[in-house]
């Protein structure tokens, strides 16, 4: 199911502001790619261009190519709705639908895609919640509101919701930044399990986390405030953290700035 993503010459703008400049990289399937870099370097913006969520913001636009295997996500006849169906996303803050039960939250995406049979829904909801390591905690209260769960549980619910529609890529925008250490650990374990099936891209502020969960790491930086963010380098995580090619990466990793 997992697909390779190839990005070439990608620019993103907020109105007149040039947010990220000329990014090209390849994201490998069935692996975890981490985006690191100082605040405001455009890593989250870049992530949101991969499922066309960037353009949801008024005035925002994107130039360049994002190939999912052999299809350009920004092709003229491509519907962003279809893109988001295959490129799932987990947000910084858990955002379950407040008016829906746990079950309905997970089933939300399935219902959109025409899955109506109760037995099929039940099966996929269970599978997704198990996949998100949440099943045992919630199986007795599936009809309770999703908003009643703890922060870490809510985030796993959001992951279950995202994987229920069996996307090919899973984007995670600092998924642990609002969580306590134990919940963070649970999510990191989950990421390690999910990578056997999905192409995962995770934005993180936490370098230890990047080192723990990712196979490849991309480092982003900005030249100064108001300047667009740039990709400095992307390489195997072990190499980035031990022997990066760029001086800027090394400075950042060793804590000399950022």
């Amino acid at each position: 199911m997992a697909k390779r993503i190839e990005i070439s010459g990608l620019h993103a703008y907020y109105g007149a502001v040039h947010a990220i400049e000329d990014i090209s990289m390849t994201v490998e399937p069935r692996s975890v790619t981490a985006f690191i870099g100082p605040s405001g370097c455009g890593k989250s913006t870049f992530l949101r261009t991969l499922n066309r969520m960037h353009e949801v913001i008024p005035g925002a636009r994107v130039e360049g190519k994002v190939m999912l295997d052999d299809e350009d996500l920004y092709g003229s006849d491509v519907d962003p709705v279809a893109v988001r169906r295959v490129v799932g996303m987990v947000f910084q803050r858990p955002n379950p639908f407040p008016t829906m039960s746990i079950y309905d939250n997970v089933a939300a995406g399935l219902k959109l895609n025409g899955v109506r049979r109760k037995s099929q829904l039940d099966e996929i909801v269970e599978r997704s919640l198990k996949g998100a390591n949440l099943w045992n905690e919630v199986k007795d209260r599936l009809s309770r509101p999703g908003a009643g769960l703890s922060g870490g549980q809510q985030q796993r619910l959001c992951i279950a919701r995202a994987i229920a529609v069996q996307p090919q890529v899973l984007l995670m925008d600092e998924p642990c930044s609002a969580l306590d250490p134990i919940s963070t650990l649970a999510i990191e374990d989950l990421i390690a399990e999910l990578k056997s099936q999905y192409t995962i891209v995770i934005v993180t502020h936490n370098m230890q986390q990047a080192a723990r969960v990712s196979d490849r790491t991309a480092f982003f930086n900005i030249a100064g405030t108001g300047k667009p963010g740039k990709l400095i380098e992307i390489d195997d995580t072990s190499k980035i953290f031990t022997n990066p090619s760029e001086k800027a990466t090394e400075d950042y990793i060793t804590g000399r700035f950022g």
Binding site: L68, D69, V83, V86, Q168
Partner: peptide, 9 residues
């Protein structure tokens, strides 16, 4: 899905 990466809406 197997045929094409992007499903039709």
């Amino acid at each position: 899905l197997e045929l094409k990466s992007l499903p039709r809406v």
